[in-house]
Design a protein around this nucleic acid. Structure first.
Lengths: 335, 335
DNA sequence: CTGTTAGCGCGTTCAT
DNA sequence: ATGAACGCGCTAACAG
């Protein structure tokens, strides 16, 4: 019944002008309370909701933000998105999702398609496949943008990250204190600041403790998952490390699979530590010592940051928000 | 530079009318190829993209779909969303995400906010907290809607589900063939067809094999996770089942925690089987026998189904798409 | 306090 | 083959 219900319709039924209805709906102070009430009541009765396209067109605001991530089906990003969604709802905004599959071409294609006013702002965790600083340098001038977790440094944009260097340093030191001296490093996110910082934290901790960092003990993540298993198995076979430091969660399954296949006792014969969420860790026995990033909070912080930009409540001059990760010590490091 | 670029601007620069530009951009057959080329070239040169709000307003199409799920940070839904996003991109559509936290009020509030033309269609996996058939009965008349995984039956809407009954029957039979006779059931999604079907599959398999289904061996999922652990521990303590059938992944961690605490050897003293994704199962040792739903494919199928509706390529009269789950047999059932 | 008017950018008549 | 004119639903400037 009743076709579409818009302000015109409300105006007709109430015998007042369209403009008055519009103002009343927006609770303008230049409309009498009596008129407002009449409008509100009818609006509610007819289940009126403003047409978003029309008001976007007019106001240049979409009440929509976009989230661009490498993957959705990933513990970290799924949690981050959850956080973003909750903040967005608090600000009555809608959330568009895009996944790049680590493909920078797709990433650019998505962001470009968002520059025509489809969204008010963008939250992005960039692809690790390649580094295109100049592209983003231009982009941040065109649309409010916040980087989270996977960021581009030196860009005059807001970054929400975690203390990758510090926590890696701490974790490595922990392994050393547990008696390890030959610690292999499973290197992920090599093209990104986060990956580099993690590796640096490991290296510095090693050197600080008089241990040598050898290339032979470092494996780089390979998208072909079976390759990772092979690499890890070979590394253990050939060099017999007494610990494995996995810098990304993707290494956890191949690491455990390799240790099981080689019948290595964890933590007696080899200790393991990994960046990983808690749920994954809880499933392992003996439980894995983890570095857990506050993914949910990162999402919330990043979104909050974006909404501050949108509301032009320009905050301090600090463009970097750094959240703390947690080193959750468990059985697998044996202390 | 150059302010906004819209068809007006293109028209001015080319000294032709706005209408011609509009038609050229839409590749209308009433425009000469020569003119089209000029328009396309300039459009590309100026990086023109149509203003979505304006074209939505005019065409009543948004090229956007909404996905409503209970949780985002959940293996199943994250994978389903991944599938949806991929299909949406294939059809050049954007994807809005909403999470209900199993709250039916929020669910209704979201869907209501989408009825004013913000999206072309909705994909939803409904909340398990309560059943509101009449609400959805009306809703499906107002907007193209596809239910996936968590559906409302008898609604004259398209449903994409899995073979819950059959796979539960199969899994229970497998346990029985492994020698189990006292199989406890961890009941999830009690308010939904999927939950009921899973339970029924278990019950039927039990009865078919002459085993009794006792209330004492059934636990209902409790949102307070610690409660689940307590319940499971007590159940094992008091009734000593020889197998646990977990009907939702959320039961896996408390189940394993309980068995570890009670020092029960899996699978020698107790066998475990659970609905769960493969990644989770791989982390467990001895590995968990799982019922794995094709989450990614469910997402893809549901989205494909929605786009068929949108393109009015009305398909067969079959409103239900049922995908097959997989029983991945592993060590934990001992055969 | 209320109404009139003029667009926002685009697509679609209907003329020419 | 091209253009003029109108309107989608809403907001904002200005008048009264």
């Amino acid at each position: 019944m009743s076709g579409e219900v818009n302000i015109k319709r409300l105006a007709q039924e109430l015998n007042i002008s369209i403009a008055t209805v519009s103002k009343a709906l927006n609770d303008s102070h230049e409309i009498s309370l009596k008129t407002k009430k009449r409008v509100w009541d009818l609006a509610k009765a007819l289940n009126y909701t403003p047409n978003p396209a029309a008001s976007n067109l007019r106001s240049n605001k979409t009440k929509t933000i976009a989230v661009i991530v490498p993957f959705i089906a990933n513990n970290f990003f799924a949690l981050a998105i959850k956080g973003i969604e909750e903040i967005a709802r608090k600000f009555s905004h809608h959330v568009l999702i895009y996944q790049t599959h680590e493909d920078i071409e797709m990433e650019m294609s998505f962001t470009n398609s968002l520059l025509n006013g489809r969204v008010d702002g963008i939250l992005t965790s960039v692809s690790s496949s390649e580094y295109n600083g100049t592209y983003y340098k231009n982009l941040v001038k065109k649309i409010p943008l916040v980087f989270f977790d996977r960021v581009y440094k030196d860009l005059d944009a807001y970054n929400v990250t975690t203390d990758d260097y510090e926590i890696s340093y701490e974790a490595t030191t922990h392994l050393i204190e547990c008696g390890c001296s030959k610690i292999a490093y499973l290197y992920g996110l090599e093209n990104l600041p986060a990956g580099n910082a993690r590796f640096l934290g490991y290296k510095d901790a090693m050197q600080k403790n008089g241990l040598t960092v050898s290339d032979e003990l470092v494996i780089n993540y390979c998208e072909d998952e079976s390759q990772n298993l092979t690499q890890i198995t070979q590394l253990i076979d050939r060099h017999g490390p007494d610990a494995l430091f996995s810098s990304i969660e993707e290494f956890v399954i191949p690491t455990y699979t390799a240790c099981r296949a080689l019948k290595l006792k964890i933590p007696d014969e080899i200790k393991i530590i990994s960046f990983s969420n808690q749920a994954t860790a809880q499933l392992l026995d003996p439980s894995l010592t983890t570095i857990t990033q506050p993914a949910f909070e990162i999402g919330r912080e990043a979104a909050t940051c974006l909404f501050k930009m949108l509301n032009k409540k320009g905050f301090g001059d600090d463009q970097d928000i750094v959240l703390k990760s947690t080193l959750v010590k468990r059985g697998s490091t044996g202390c």
